[in-house]
Nucleic acid binder design. Structure first.
Lengths: 129, 129
DNA sequence: GTACGTGCAAATGATTTGCGTTAAG
DNA sequence: CTTAACGCAAATCATTTGCACGTAC
């Protein structure tokens, strides 16, 4: 893993990182706080904020903003999201095909140097149908 | 235009709506407030918030959240966004081809009833290159 | 005339910051 | 030992709400 040199692995930081790595539900700041607090009862929310920013900057986790809410995920590879407008659940949608198609299409826009792309799908999940 | 019956067209509401209809830069709440204040100097920010929500609910404008910031746009048709990571500029990218491709692809996910889709492109614009 | 909208100030909620203390390397 | 991280409380910033007054229809 690159960028991991010189990181102080405090208990708090490790628990936050592990929590996100074990969670594919795209937890919010509060989700992370509540989850980590079960092990580290004295952790403060400021520490959670600080570490989520830190880990994101280090590229160890990724931040996604969905409908104005910050969420965090361990999946660092290019992918897409399917979002249920009823229950708010979010699942990853891996499709290199879609990523490639999007990037190919955007090449026509010569004014831009595009670096990444992602597609959001909004609809209703199985449970909510 | 549907849904426009029974709307009280106050000065404030009309100016806010016109401001967004004339602006294709995806203004934030503050951008709208500053812009409309030039004509209606006594308008309050609460009124701007209330009307942006109101107009969005009525389907007269659309809200997009980009990197955690709420923005508003007059473009009601399905489209995509190109975002410069340097200057933050956002431009619309019309591509029925991409929308259709995305929707076709997602049909394989039988668990979901997808209603809409949109793609964000991140990169560097001409000026910032 | 009535219901809805407005402006203002206060309330709420999310996130950041300052600072004295603690712990990783 | 030294520097970065922690916990806590206060500060900041975005957004919402309560209410007395104003205005569209």
């Amino acid at each position: 893993m690159t960028g991991t040199e010189g990181i102080k692995y405090t208990n708090q930081r490790v628990e936050i990182l592990n929590f996100i790595r074990d969670n594919f539900t795209h937890p919010t700041v509060d989700d992370v706080y509540e989850g980590v607090k079960k092990k580290l009862t004295r952790i403060s929310k400021a520490t959670v904020y600080q570490n989520l920013k830190f880990l994101t900057n280090k590229g160890l986790i990724q931040e996604v903003n969905i409908k104005g809410v910050s969420r965090f995920e361990p999946n660092l590879t290019p992918h897409h999201h399917i979002i249920c407008r009823n229950c708010g659940s979010i699942v990853d949608f891996e499709s290199k095909e879609l990523t490639d198609f999007s990037l190919e299409l955007i090449k026509k826009m010569k004014e831009y140097k595009i670096e990444s792309t992602n597609t959001n799908f909004f609809g209703v999940c199985d449970k909510c149908k």
